[in-house]
Computed example of a mutant assay.
Amino acid sequence: MPKPQRLEKPLDSFVREIALCVATNGDKGPALFWPENFHTLPELQRLARSVRPPGGWPYGAGTWLSPTDGPPRRSGAVGPEAEGLAAALGELLGLLVRPSYRFLPSAAVGARQASRTAEYMVTVLDGACRCRVTRDADAAGGPPSDAVDLRLRAGGTLFVPRDHAYDLLDVHTPTVLMELVLSETD
């Protein structure tokens, strides 16, 4: 991870809002929020556009663009500014934060994301989709329960705590997401 750098006001505000959300909801359950600063969404969209290949996202449905993923992979796929945002958030929370982008074309269904050890922040940059959050059966030792079903739209950020999973469903328009994975640094 690059060293934290001074973030522009909208991104700095977003990082602080995420930290507050994690501190408030970390052990209670999922949470949804919209950035307080009006300029945050355009700045986040700019970060994603800076790594968007000419002609669009060619990698196919549900592709994560992350420097730690296997093929398809592009060097520095998330870009230095997204890495800087992740580093600033990681420093504030004392966690390792890994950023990635995901493109979902119309009629796509995203893969299930679940973790016992990580928390997720999922921000819709463009488009919309339905999201179902459940307590993860593997993590909780039983069947999925406590489902929260909601519609995510551009600008919304969803916090998914440990021991939960989320599914992205009902994509009716091309959708771009930014995911931040928060995990222990050990």
Score class of each variant (00 low, 15 high):
residue 35 P to N: 02
residue 39 H to F: 13
residue 95 L to K: 14
residue 43 E to L: 07
residue 72 P to C: 04
residue 96 L to R: 15
residue 114 A to S: 14
residue 44 L to K: 00
residue 151 R to Q: 11
residue 171 V to I: 07
residue 106 S to F: 08
residue 159 F to K: 00
residue 180 L to N: 02
residue 33 F to Q: 02
residue 49 R to I: 08
residue 102 R to F: 01
residue 64 W to M: 13
residue 172 H to E: 11
residue 38 F to G: 04
residue 32 L to I: 15
residue 108 A to L: 08
residue 174 P to K: 02
residue 140 A to H: 07
residue 164 H to F: 05
residue 158 L to G: 00
residue 108 A to H: 06
residue 93 L to I: 07
residue 163 D to C: 07
residue 163 D to T: 06
residue 141 G to S: 09
residue 145 S to G: 06
residue 139 A to S: 15
residue 11 L to C: 05
residue 8 E to D: 14
residue 162 R to S: 02
residue 158 L to E: 00
residue 100 S to N: 13
residue 102 R to K: 12
residue 6 R to F: 08
residue 59 Y to C: 10
residue 80 P to C: 06
residue 107 A to W: 15
residue 93 L to Q: 03
residue 34 W to M: 12
residue 152 L to E: 02
residue 173 T to I: 07
residue 175 T to L: 05
residue 97 V to C: 06
residue 37 N to C: 10
residue 7 L to P: 02
residue 24 T to Y: 12
residue 95 L to P: 00
residue 105 P to T: 11
residue 133 V to W: 01
residue 37 N to D: 15
residue 175 T to E: 03
residue 155 G to R: 03
residue 82 A to H: 04
residue 182 L to E: 00
residue 152 L to I: 09
residue 130 R to E: 14
residue 144 P to E: 03
residue 99 P to M: 03
residue 153 R to N: 06
residue 33 F to T: 07
residue 170 D to G: 02
residue 40 T to Q: 01
residue 45 Q to A: 10
residue 105 P to V: 11
residue 127 G to P: 04
residue 18 I to F: 04
residue 86 A to L: 03
residue 61 A to P: 09
residue 71 P to G: 01
residue 14 F to S: 00
residue 21 C to A: 15
residue 113 Q to G: 05
residue 18 I to C: 12
residue 4 P to C: 04
residue 109 V to P: 01
residue 55 G to V: 12
residue 118 A to L: 09
residue 152 L to F: 05
residue 67 P to K: 05
residue 84 G to D: 13
residue 12 D to Q: 15
residue 138 D to V: 13
residue 121 M to C: 11
residue 129 C to E: 03
residue 151 R to D: 10
residue 137 A to L: 07
residue 169 L to K: 03
residue 172 H to Q: 08
residue 71 P to W: 09
residue 176 V to W: 01
residue 134 T to W: 08
